[in-house]
């Protein structure tokens, strides 16, 4: 630990000149020699939200939820120099996903190849104190399953051409981001007092219903420290959700209702508009 502390002291002296962003980067690099060491840090992370169920109304057009949290057993010195970073991610329910690619066949665009992935989060919103790549190295983030780039996309079943799976992965992440289902906010987590932070996490307008997980991770000088998670249920309210449930759980009644409504509408119009 002595080498580490002296490195920190050096950095601390340099900090006012270099700015904090650079500081953390330097710190992350100073740990290079200690790769593989399993650190056990004393810090604890606690988070809380005002509700464990979010009811989405039919005209919901996206909103932020706020997650508050504290770092306990913190090192005041490290806190003061901004060596702590927090990443908060809201992960949607896991669902299997199939990505298909169109190709031109006899002049027509046809779905030719497809890759099926193991269940992936149906939505993913991530907020952090800084851009992820300045919080920790890619390998650290990947090991802790954090970041859109590190969402696990594992193909299932037999693959035709393994070399193309990368293209399908990238397409999946690209389309999910375009649809607003995967989002990031690199400055969404802010310290509101000494060790209390507030994370704004975006709920997309088309947020899937089901069990979501809020996962918060604490990083210290580019090293993963700890994580904590809470469950969050997203439910939809109103007639629309009632309709959806009816259609899926009592589909025969729903089908009969649809036909009944059609017969009634058609019959009513013929009564109202009868010519004679």
């Amino acid at each position: 630990m002595t080498g580490r502390i002296s490195a920190l002291l050096t950095i601390c002296l340099l900090a006012p000149m270099l700015g904090l962003g650079l500081t953390a980067h330097a710190l992350a690099q100073s740990d290079d020699s200690e790769e593989g060491t399993v650190w056990s840090f004393p810090e604890q992370l606690d988070i809380g939200i005002s509700t464990n169920e979010i009811a989405i109304s039919p005209n919901f057009s996206g909103a932020d939820i706020f997650v508050f949290g504290t770092i306990a057993e913190q090192d005041d010195f490290l806190l003061a120099i901004g060596a702590y970073d927090i990443i908060v991610a809201l992960e949607g329910p896991l669902r299997p996903a199939t990505v298909r690619r169109k190709e031109r066949v006899a002049g027509i665009w046809v779905n030719r190849h497809s890759v099926r992935f193991e269940p992936v989060p149906a939505s993913y919103s991530i907020s952090s104190t800084r851009p992820l790549d300045s919080i920790a190295k890619q390998i650290v983030l990947s090991a802790n399953d954090v970041g859109i780039k590190n969402i696990r996309l594992i193909p299932t079943g037999g693959l035709g051409d393994a070399s193309q799976v990368g293209d399908f992965r990238q397409a999946m992440l690209r389309i999910m981001q375009q649809a607003g289902l995967y989002q990031r906010d690199p400055s969404g987590v802010k310290f509101v007092s000494k060790n209390l932070f507030k994370a704004a996490v975006r709920l997309p307008a088309n947020i899937p219903v089901g069990e979501h997980t809020v996962r918060a991770e604490l990083y210290r000088n580019g090293q993963y420290v700890t994580q904590t998670r809470i469950r969050l249920r997203v439910v939809k309210t109103g007639l629309e959700q009632f309709t959806y449930n009816l259609a899926h759980q009592h589909s025969l009644i729903y089908g009969l209702l649809a036909v009944g409504f059609a017969l009634f509408t058609g019959w009513l119009s013929s009564v109202i508009f009868r010519k004679d």
């Binding site: 669902r95 199939t98 298909r100 690619r101 999946m172 389309i175």
Partner: peptide
């Protein structure tokens, strides 16, 4: 629609179909 090149050649299906 069938003949013109689509904007996005990839598509995603989530859930049980696929």
């Amino acid at each position: 629609n069938l003949v013109l090149p689509p904007d996005e050649i990839y598509s995603i299906v989530t859930g049980s179909f696929g």
